[in-house]
């Protein structure tokens, strides 16, 4: 397997990890302040969508750098992608309920 400690240090190093950490902190602060903006006036659920987009970006940084997936073998990539696929199944099948109710949290 290609992911050993020395190799990560070559790729990103301690300063690199600190940058990623700061990005995550910035994302958290940004999520907090964005919740005060009235984006729902653009379309319902826009605030939630923005918060989820920030969370997704933060998650990608964690997976790729902190969890070393970026430098890992194809098998590890497959496992990571499979986990997302399963998450997508959970969201899709749950949302098919909400989107097709007569009234529900996403109804206008």
């Amino acid at each position: 397997m290609s992911d050993n400690h020395a190799e990560h240090e070559e790729h990103i190093g301690i300063p690199g990890y600190l940058v990623i950490f700061l990005i995550l902190v910035f994302g958290t602060i940004f999520t907090y302040f964005s919740s005060f903006w009235d984006l729902d006036s653009i379309f319902p659920g826009a605030n939630t969508l923005l918060a989820l987009a920030i969370a997704f970006t933060k998650m990608m940084f964690v997976i790729l750098y902190f969890m070393h997936v970026r430098w890992s073998s194809k098998t590890v990539w497959l496992a990571a992608v499979a986990a997302f696929f399963w998450l997508a199944i959970m969201f899709a099948f749950t949302m098919q309920d909400y989107f097709t109710r007569i009234s529900g949290v996403f109804s206008v």
């Binding site: 399963w86 199944i89 099948f93 098919q96 309920d97 909400y98 097709t100 109710r101 007569i102 529900g104």
Partner: peptide
Amino acid sequence: GFLVWGHHMFVSGQSIFAGLVF
């Protein structure tokens, strides 16, 4: 097995469409 969980929820208030799929 991951695609069928809604059959526990047919009378819970889940939508009829979701019920059909599950």
